[in-house]
C-alpha cells in the first residue's frame, strides 16, 4: 500500500478544464503533467506529458480508452500511437518504455495531483 505521508497534493486545475474522456496538460514548475478525465469510468489519471518514444510533449493530447477483458485504461500517443497503461505507466505496445504516473484526487471541482 502507498503511504500517503510523503505525497504532496498540488492543485492542478479545475475539473472543467479537462475535456470529458480526454486529457489536458498542466505546468508544475518545470514539469509537464498530463491529466486525464475518464468521464466514462468516472475516473481521473495523471502521467508525464512526455512520450518516451520520440521525446514529444504530447501525451495529454492523446486519445484514451481501454484494452483487454479487464478494461485496462490506457492513453495512445498522438504521434505514433504507442499506448501506455494509465494505471502503472507500462507501455502496452510491446516496447520497453515506462512512463511516470501520478495519483489524482478530485474535490469540490478541483483536481489535485500527488507529487512524491
Amino acid at each position: 500500500m502507498e503511504t500517503l505521508t510523503d505525497i504532496e497534493w498540488v492543485l492542478a486545475c479545475y475539473t472543467d478544464d479537462v475535456p470529458a474522456n480526454g486529457g489536458a496538460c498542466i505546468k508544475h514548475g518545470d514539469e509537464q503533467i498530463a491529466i486525464y478525465n475518464f468521464t466514462r469510468r468516472n475516473e481521473w489519471y495523471a502521467t508525464q506529458n512526455l512520450c518516451p518514444h520520440k521525446q514529444q510533449m504530447v501525451l495529454s493530447r492523446g486519445m484514451i480508452g481501454s484494452t483487454g477483458e479487464d478494461c485496462n485504461p490506457k492513453v495512445a500517443c498522438p504521434f505514433h500511437k504507442k499506448t501506455f497503461s494509465l494505471i502503472n505507466g507500462e507501455c502496452l505496445s510491446g516496447d520497453d518504455y515506462q512512463i511516470k504516473t501520478y495519483p489524482v484526487k478530485v474535490a469540490d471541482g478541483r483536481v489535485y495531483v500527488g507529487i512524491v
Partner: peptide
C-alpha cells in the same frame, strides 16, 4: 463494449 480506444474513436 468497453471504453473505446484510439482505433475505433477516429
Amino acid at each position: 463494449k468497453g471504453d473505446g480506444c484510439e482505433v475505433c474513436k477516429p
